[in-house]
Amino acid sequence: MKLTVNDTEHEVDVDPAMPLLWVLRDELGITGPKYGCGIAQCGACTVHIDGQAVRSCQVAIGDLVGDVTTIEGLGTPDLRHAVQEAWIEGQVAQCGYCQSGQIMQAASLLETNPAPTDDDIDRAMSGNLCRCGTYPRIRAAIHSAAAKLQEG
């Protein structure tokens, strides 16, 4: 099976039922997306497929259609996406384990809604669980990233 992740094409030979998450993590060594629940309850594995936020633990590799972007493809420590920049400035993370998923979901939200209200954020972000409880800072960072992106 072929797949494109962060603009690089890969070929894997696995059970078609294997979730994209495990193809990324164990077959391709792309570990930004995290395993948290395996049943779409936590959002830690969120990636983009053709730009849409998707829980990679729910996508069987045999049914994958589209290009995959992981947090590693969104930005890097040296070349950060505006959302990542806002996350750093706002000192959002505690343990940080959920934050790859939070950032990917937030980036997707801002693609479709450049100036989300608190209510919009509540609707878009509540599928992403943070056990440490960094939600107040996530909310602030999304508003800050939105302002950054609007300034260009």
């Binding site: 992981t70 590693e72 420590p77 950060r80 996350w87 000192q91 993370a93 790859s100 950032i103």
Partner: peptide, 8 residues
């Protein structure tokens, strides 16, 4: 904080 905000 940088590593935890970039998936690294």
């Amino acid at each position: 904080i940088v590593a935890k905000s970039t998936g690294t």
